[in-house]
């Protein structure tokens, strides 16, 4: 029961830090002006064009594809795998899983292999490619280690040392209405949850900010229309008042 309380507190804290931290960061990105029109060209000239460019960037990693095929392959495998796995996990947070969520379960299950393959590939590059080794910091390795721990424990529980998922679901549904239901005592589960909580706690202060950051990147989210529209930041407009 003490572990249950520990994780209950931890997840309240992690959820708060993650949400508030991310909201603050997004607010901070959004309030900072882009004083000049700086899309990397050729760039779309209209807003729908920009949305399409951003879609390709976020879903297909278009620029990375142009930049490095191996990194693209591993990066895309990891992120798409993670995406499916995360969707699958929604079932822990809704009492009655809708049909599409049930349908997606096996995909999410096997997507974990793709995710782990991508992770291992990405980590391998940090050791074996001289340039990437040079630019890697200890935290780059630790992030990959953390994700690997989360992934391995998750897959372990799915395919090998099963855990009482009904109880896990009851724990999380309980948290959402401020009730504490016992977590199954399972080392794999504890490690898995600890890893996820650490990730959530650090997310708003780390390079994981690339996730919201990409949407605010002026070289990608600005339309190429500077001759047609005057673009003036508030602080820059002050020069014209004197």
């Amino acid at each position: 029961m003490s572990m249950t309380i520990f994780f209950a507190v931890l997840f309240y804290l992690a959820a708060a830090v993650f949400t508030l931290g991310l909201i603050y960061k997004i607010y901070d990105f959004a309030r900072t002006p882009a004083p000049l029109s700086i899309p990397t060209t050729p760039a779309p000239t209209t807003t729908p064009g920009v949305i399409w460019r951003m879609f390709r960037e976020v879903v297909f990693f278009e620029s990375l594809f142009k930049g490095n095929l191996w990194t693209w392959l591993f990066g895309w495998m990891f992120h798409m795998g993670l995406f499916l796995v995360l969707i699958r996990h929604l079932r822990y947070f809704v009492a009655e899983a809708p049909v599409w969520l049930l349908f997606i379960q096996p995909f999410g299950k096997y997507a974990s292999f793709m995710m782990m393959g991508g992770l291992i590939g990405l980590w391998g590059r940090r050791f074996f490619v001289e340039r990437i080794r040079y630019i890697s910091t200890p935290s780059d390795h630790l992030w990959l280690a953390l994700l690997l721990v989360i992934g391995v424990t998750g897959m372990g529980m799915t395919f090998w040392m099963h855990v009482d998922v009904v109880a896990v679901k009851a724990f999380f549904l309980g948290l959402m209405v401020f009730e504490i239901n016992a977590l199954p005592a399972h080392m794999g589960l504890f490690l898995h949850l600890l890893g996820v909580a650490v990730l959530m706690l650090l997310f708003p202060f780390s390079k994981l900010l690339h996730a919201p950051g990409v949407f605010f990147s002026p070289t990608r989210n600005m339309a190429d229309n500077p001759r047609e529209q005057r673009h003036l930041a508030p602080w820059a407009a002050n020069f014209e008042k004197s």
Partner: peptide, 24 residues
């Protein structure tokens, strides 16, 4: 400058050291 240029602010935070740029 971090308060004046969104580019600088986002670019300081967003890099993951993926290495795509390293040979460009």
């Amino acid at each position: 400058l971090l308060g004046k240029y969104r580019s600088l602010k986002v670019f300081m935070d967003a890099c993951v050291h993926c290495g795509s740029c390293t040979d460009k």
